[in-house]
């Protein structure tokens, strides 16, 4: 019986480790290949380790004109930080209001917001968005996209925060209200400080989605290449004519773009997990 247990455990571990290798392989390959010369990437793809490791690709990416990483990085950082901040602000206020507020159309508004999850219009509505933007005299730019993002509805995050506010006993609010705190005051002074862990989760999810965003930033920076984010710049290089000649640059760029996300995951993986798991169980 005991022997059987050991064998079945060994098989189990072998299975898990095999999957682990398969999962990590493409990421490892990318990072290692980013230290190869372009010729080696094209002619000798079979070996994982670079023959003559070089940081030349990174130097080139840092200084090249067509794929100027410092500018792209700057744009990515601005775009991500602003979106993170607005997501935190909007979703924490909305989560609190939907959990605690009493007003006429609360249920209706909440249902409307939720229904958006099931409406996929396939991109054509971007033209309507452009119309709205030109009505308020905003040109297509990364800034305009951040404004659009501010007004979009972070429904999953609202759910996360609403669920968390609901676990806080209402007695706490009432005590504060007796002490003269207003509805808004309760939010900023009492509730918000208690939401720190879930706010960390929302922040990390918002960081990840903005940093990785491709379609929308691409649409909004078509006429302003100087405002491209790192991901958009990478994809522009990929679809350009010099694509085959630039695998070294692209893989170096991809490694740079993955780095912040991987570092964030390494340090905050419990917040990631919490957000994901809560999302599933609550539906």
């Amino acid at each position: 019986m005991r022997k059987k247990q050991v064998i079945s455990n060994a098989v189990l571990y072998l299975f898990l480790i095999a999957v682990l290798i398969g999962t990590m392989f493409p990421l490892l390959y990318t990072v290692l290949a980013s230290f190869k010369s372009n010729a080696e990437i094209l002619t000798n793809p079979g070996s994982m380790l670079p023959k003559n490791p070089t940081v030349n690709n990174y130097v080139q990416a840092w200084t090249s004109d067509s794929f100027h990483v410092p500018t792209l990085l700057r744009n990515s950082v601005i775009y991500t930080l602003v979106n993170m901040f607005t997501t935190l602000l909007i979703s924490s206020m909305a989560g609190y209001v939907f959990a605690r507020g009493h007003f006429k159309f609360k249920k209706l508004i909440f249902y409307c917001f939720t229904a958006l999850m099931f409406i996929k219009t396939g991109g054509i509505t971007i033209y309507a968005t452009f119309k709205v933007l030109s009505a308020v005299h905003l040109d297509r730019s990364l800034f305009a996209l951040m404004v659009v993002h501010l007004f979009s509805i972070p429904i999953v995050n609202i759910y996360l925060i609403k669920g968390n506010v609901e676990t806080i006993p209402t007695a706490i609010d009432e005590a504060a209200k007796i002490d003269g705190c207003s509805f808004v005051g309760v939010f900023f002074k009492i509730i918000l400080p208690m939401l720190k862990p879930i706010l960390a989760t929302v922040a990390i999810l918002a960081f990840n989605s903005s940093w990785n965003d491709y379609l929308m930033p691409n649409i909004f920076t078509l006429t302003a290449p100087g405002q491209r984010t790192l991901i958009v710049g990478l994809m522009a290089l990929k679809s350009s004519g010099e694509s085959a000649a630039s695998w070294n640059l692209m893989l170096a760029g991809a490694s740079i773009a993955m780095l912040p996300v991987l570092v964030a995951f390494a340090f905050c993986n419990k917040y990631f997990v919490k957000g994901i798991a809560a999302g599933a169980v609550k539906g």
């Binding site: 999957v19 682990l20 999962t23 990590m24 493409p26 990421l27 990840n208 940093w211 990785n212 965003d213 491709y214 991901i231 990478l234 994809m235 991809a254 773009a257 993955m258 996300v261 991987l262 995951f265 993986n269 990631f272 997990v273 994901i276």
Partner: peptide, 12 residues
């Protein structure tokens, strides 16, 4: 580790 590919940009 299994979750890692999930957090990487779809574009990448």
């Amino acid at each position: 580790m299994y979750f890692l590919p999930n957090i990487i940009s779809v574009a990448i």
